[in-house]
Amino acid sequence: MRHALPLALAALLLGGCASHKPEDFNGTWINQEAIDAAAKGTSLRQALADHGPVFEWKVDVKNQQASFSNGFEAADGRLSANQNNWQVDFEGGQSEQLTLDGDELQASDPSGHQQTFARAKAAGAAPLGSSFEKALYQAYLGGDWKIAEGQGKGATVHFSDTGSVTGLPGPDRFALCLAGDCASMGGGNDSLWLERDQRGAPFIFKRDGDKLTIFKAVNTAQPDEIPQLAAGAQQWVLEKD
Rank of each mutant, 00 (worst) to 15 (best):
Q65R: 15
N84P: 00
W236R: 05
K40D: 03
N219E: 06
A18M: 11
Q234W: 07
S95M: 12
V237N: 05
Q234G: 00
V157Q: 08
G92Y: 13
E239Q: 14
D101H: 08
N82I: 12
A231N: 09
L128A: 12
K211M: 07
G188W: 01
D181I: 05
R2E: 12
D24S: 12
Q114C: 08
S184W: 03
A39C: 01
W145K: 05
A8N: 10
A81N: 01
L192V: 09
N70V: 07
G180W: 11
L44D: 01
I30T: 13
S80D: 15
L229R: 10
Q235A: 15
D197G: 00
S69I: 08
D60R: 11
G27F: 11
S164P: 06
I147L: 06
L176W: 05
S184I: 09
F90D: 10
V54K: 05
N189E: 05
D24Q: 13
F25V: 06
L44R: 04
P169Y: 10
F132D: 04
T99E: 13
D76E: 14
L14R: 10
E149T: 11
K153Y: 07
V237H: 02
D210W: 10
E73I: 07
A126F: 03
A34S: 14
Q94K: 14
A231V: 08
P171W: 06
I147A: 02
W236Q: 02
R196M: 04
A179C: 00
K206S: 10
A123Q: 05
G170R: 09
S43N: 09
S111R: 12
L194P: 02
G186F: 02
W29S: 07
Q106K: 15
D224I: 08
M1R: 09
D76S: 14
Q64Y: 14
G170Y: 12
C177V: 13
G15F: 06
A221E: 05
K153D: 02
D89K: 15
E96C: 00
A125S: 15
E96R: 05
N219L: 09
D210A: 15
K153I: 02
A217F: 04
S111W: 01
L141C: 11
P127D: 13
T220G: 01
K211I: 09
L48G: 03
A183M: 11
H51M: 02
E91S: 13
D76H: 15
F215N: 11
A139K: 02
C17Q: 09
E33Y: 07
A38I: 07
L238D: 04
L192K: 03
E96A: 06
Q222W: 03
S95T: 15
G15R: 13
A81Q: 08
Y137S: 08
C177R: 01
K206V: 14
T156L: 11
A183D: 09
G187W: 04
F215P: 00
A217W: 03
C177Y: 01
Q106W: 04
G209D: 14
P171S: 11
K153M: 02
A139W: 03
A118Q: 07
L192G: 00
Q198R: 11
Y140W: 13
V218L: 11
W193D: 01
E23G: 09
K62H: 05
G124F: 05
A122K: 14
A155H: 04
Q234P: 03
I35L: 12
R199C: 00
Q138I: 02
D60Q: 15
Q114Y: 00
E91H: 06
D208R: 14
